[in-house]
Design a protein around this nucleic acid. Structure first.
Length: 269
DNA sequence: ACGCAGACCTGTACGC
DNA sequence: TGCGTACAGGTCTGCG
């Protein structure tokens, strides 16, 4: 489910309440996360630091007297959720992992079990794989340079996290529609003005989605168990057969690189 | 460098 | 109601 705005939403919410809380215990409830079992004994008493996003991962630092012991890096993949459960409250969903805190618990719930949690100890491992859209280094020129001579379709190119990180299927479809660019267009064929437009629309749409706490298409929930409201603003994603809000043509869905692409043949080229 | 198939998992929606 | 099928926001590996 989660792309950059959803991960950012979760990280911001957790950052308001988690820093300073003490980890009392760690329960691994899914054998797929058995690699974390050795941490259960060693991390007791550690203090949570500032929570942030790196690419599509949520980073939870664990500290000791101000020095960082390491970072839990959570990738939510399709159905992962980080849910904060206050003292005494019932667990809203089956959890794969439970961090017991001095007050309450943080659950990692994840129906499809694709999500990952890694214990990182080297700062270099925290870096996102590609350019973050909000990184000052991510400029229209930098994007154009990265895509120079790329023949890959624009959509596949943008989904590759090693280039730009944070975009997923929903936001790529929405950004390309906003720019009037076809998902099938070769990435290396854009003019400088189109890269400027893409850069601007990418940031605008992601920022708007963050303000709306993300998109709940089927199962995204934030750390409070609430849905995001950006779904109401979708122009093309999931709207095959509907009229394009801009030109009125019928929105199409076609499979591209094994995934659905939604776009408007009337105004995207 | 790229596309594609298949994996990893489970739930939901839809057609018959 | 029940069964089968398609599909889902992500990413990896292996093959051509």
């Amino acid at each position: 489910m989660p792309e950059l705005p959803e991960v950012e939403t979760v990280a911001r919410q957790l950052d308001r309440v988690l820093p300073g809380r003490i980890l009392r215990g760690l329960q691994v409830r899914d054998p797929k996360l058995a690699h974390l079992e050795s941490l259960a004994g060693s991390l007791g008493g550690a203090r949570l630091g500032r929570i942030r996003r790196s690419g599509k991962r949520v980073i939870l630092p664990l500290e000791d007297e101000g020095s960082v012991r390491g970072w839990l890096a959570v990738h939510l993949r399709m159905t992962g959720r980080l849910l904060l459960v206050e003292e005494g409250a019932a667990e809203p969903a089956p959890a794969r992992l439970c961090l017991e805190l001095d007050r309450g618990r943080l659950l990692f719930a994840d129906t499809r079990r694709f999500g990952t949690v890694d214990w990182l100890t080297r700062p270099a491992e925290l870096a996102p794989p590609g350019l973050d859209p909000f990184d000052p280094a991510c400029t229209p020129t930098a994007l154009a340079e990265l895509a120079r001579a790329a023949r890959a379709p624009l959509k596949s190119w943008l989904l590759d996290q090693k280039r730009v990180c944070g975009l997923g299927n929903i936001y790529v479809c929405e950004i390309l529609h906003a720019c009037r660019l076809s998902p099938w267009r070769a990435a290396g064929s854009l003019e400088p003005a189109q890269w400027r437009l893409l850069h601007r629309e990418m940031r605008r749409i992601l920022r708007l989605a963050i303000e709306n706490c993300g998109t709940t298409f089927s199962d995204f929930q934030d750390s409070r168990g609430l849905e995001g409201s950006f779904g109401r603003m979708l122009q093309v994603y999931g709207r095959a057969g509907a009229a394009c809000p801009r030109c009125g043509a019928v929105v199409q869905r076609e499979t591209q690189a094994q995934r659905g692409s939604w776009w408007c043949p009337g105004c995207q080229e």
